[in-house]
């Protein structure tokens, strides 16, 4: 199944030699339909919200989608315990409150949570390291679902493994709930660096590089040719300011997820709006300066080196 991978149309410049024809007639849940929603979300901000009221604030600020969850990562960190999929009732309330797409998280490997989210008609599923993993070896076989999935990655190998399992969209993991951008930058730079290396390799070298990255060869080859991940790639985990968001956009991601950064700050509505503007105008420092003015208190933030190894969410996922 994974060999059937096709790059989302026009994600990169068209090559004339490669024009696959769509032959479906009124078919739902094709890979194009899944990656198509991810392409529509590009250059947008997806915001974590825990209730209908926050979802409305996000929508009014210009969020391209909302992520419905019971506790934002900062609170998951603080309160501890097992973190699971949200109550379907709460997800439904959020869906009813907004018209933009609604995403929700499932635990890594927990395909029944994913079946539940598919049954209630969510728009996108995040198989997320922010929740407590349900399987320490296997991720969900995402080809089996009609709903598109987004997954996190720290490096190219991890990203391509998730895509081969059927992910229609990726995001760099960062370190959720810290308000610290350092890990998101590390992961984005790692992926960029590995793609650049792959792009300069001969086919022979790519075979060996695929082994090193533990990535499927055909996806690595496609990535090397495109010079980017072969699906839409957002940034996540640690975005707290408009400058953080613009930084990730300039590093080459297609959009950003903001988790705790908005609703753990002093003035969520204003900060949310400012981050949206910063993503659109990411290469215009004057506008970023303007929107960064007077945003009130940012979330407090955690220095990564003060966290124990077992407190790092990015390490979850295999």
């Amino acid at each position: 199944m994974s060999e059937n991978f096709t790059v989302p149309a026009n994600l990169t410049r068209i090559e004339n030699d490669k024009i696959p024809k769509v032959s479906h007639n009124g078919v739902i849940a094709t890979f194009s339909v899944k990656t198509g929603l991810a392409q529509n979300l590009k250059n947008g901000v997806i915001m974590d919200v825990i209730n209908a009221e926050q979802a409305r604030i996000a929508e009014e600020a210009g969020a391209a989608a909302v992520m419905a969850l019971e506790r934002v990562p900062a609170d998951i960190r603080k309160e501890g315990g097992v973190s699971r999929m949200s109550d379907p009732k709460m997800i439904r309330e959020i869906r009813e409150a907004v018209t933009i797409p609604v995403m929700a998280k499932v635990r890594i490997g927990h395909f029944v949570e994913a079946q539940i989210l598919e049954a209630i008609g969510i728009d996108f599923i995040d198989e997320s390291e922010v929740l407590t993993p349900a399987d320490e070896q296997n991720h969900i076989n995402k080809h089996n679902f009609k709903i598109p999935f987004v997954c996190g990655a720290k490096n190219l190998g991890e990203a391509l493994r998730r895509i081969s399992e059927g992910a229609a969209m990726m995001r760099t993991k960062g370190e959720a709930g810290t308000g610290n951008i350092v890990e998101a930058v590390r992961h984005m730079r790692t992926i960029n660096n590995e793609i650049r290396r792959a792009s300069a390799m001969s086919e022979e070298e790519l075979f060996s590089y695929a082994k090193e990255l533990q990535a499927p060869y055909h996806l690595l080859k496609e990535t090397a040719k495109l010079k980017r991940l072969p699906v839409v790639n957002f940034s996540a985990g640690g975005v707290a300011t408009p400058a953080d968001a613009a930084l990730m956009m300039q590093l080459g991601c297609d959009g950003v997820f903001v988790g705790s950064g908005i609703f753990k700050s002093g003035d969520p509505a204003k900060r949310a709006k400012a981050i949206v503007q910063a993503v659109t105008h990411y290469d215009d420092p004057k506008i970023i300066a303007e929107v960064s003015e007077d945003l009130g208190e940012a979330m407090v933030g955690i220095n990564i080196d003060t966290l124990q190894d077992n407190q790092l969410m990015a390490k979850r996922g295999w």
Partner: peptide, 15 residues
């Protein structure tokens, strides 16, 4: 009519 066909699960390809 926005979202005429429903949520993402109802998105489709057609000729």
């Amino acid at each position: 009519n926005r979202n005429q066909f429903g949520s993402q699960i109802d998105s489709f390809e057609s000729l």
